[in-house]
Simulated scan of single mutants.
Amino acid sequence: MVTLCAAAALAAPLGAASAAPATEPEPQRHRTGGPVLPDCQGRPEVRPGAYLLACGDGNSRLDSLRWSRWDARAAVAQGVNVVNDCVPYCAAGTFRSYPVTVRLEAPAGDRGAGEPRFTRISVTYTDGRPAGAPRTVSYPLPG
């Protein structure tokens, strides 16, 4: 059950956020070179300090992101993935933090605004990980 909840939380990168505690700083929404990262609503962000992965239920987010690279090909950050363990079930679960490296890749042009957007995010757990999660998880990004 825990594995199922953790996998569902990690595999839900689209939708509307609802339950995650929100204490992250306001991300930059203007372009400062290189592609942008679309948030859950498709708004462009540049070097955000936090990013919601599980937009549908808020059970997985990236926090304390420190970007060491952000250019036309890729972006790399260190931070933590805060994931609901869903024990005994998701509504009563505990949020647990796991150190991660985040990589954004595969920029593509946006048909609307014309600014390129990263289209893939990879999260690599560097010290521990949610039950049943692989060491590296990759998701397509909204675009």
Rank of each mutant, 00 (worst) to 15 (best):
A9T: 10
R135S: 07
G128P: 04
R73N: 08
S97G: 13
A108W: 04
G93P: 05
V83P: 00
S18C: 13
S97M: 11
A133I: 14
D39Q: 06
Y89L: 12
A7R: 14
V137Y: 10
S122A: 15
Q78C: 03
A6F: 01
D71Q: 07
G132M: 08
A12F: 06
A75V: 02
T136P: 01
R31D: 15
T126H: 01
R61Y: 04
P140Y: 06
P140M: 09
A50I: 03
N84R: 02
C86Y: 11
S68E: 13
P38I: 10
T3C: 04
V46L: 06
M1G: 01
Q78L: 08
P130F: 07
P107L: 12
R117N: 06
H30I: 14
S60R: 07
D127P: 00
R96T: 03
V76T: 12
R120Q: 08
A54K: 05
S97L: 08
P48S: 05
A106P: 07
G128M: 05
Y98G: 00
R103N: 00
R103W: 03
S18E: 15
G56Q: 12
Y89M: 10
V102R: 08
R61Q: 08
C90W: 15
P27A: 10
T124R: 15
L62H: 01
A11R: 14
P134M: 00
A12D: 11
C55E: 02
V2T: 15
F118P: 12
C86R: 13
L37H: 05
R66N: 01
A91H: 11
T136I: 00
A6E: 14
W67T: 02
V76S: 00
A50K: 01
G93E: 00
L65F: 10
Y125H: 07
H30K: 10
G132L: 11
P48N: 09
P21Y: 14
P25V: 02
A8D: 14
V83E: 07
L37A: 01
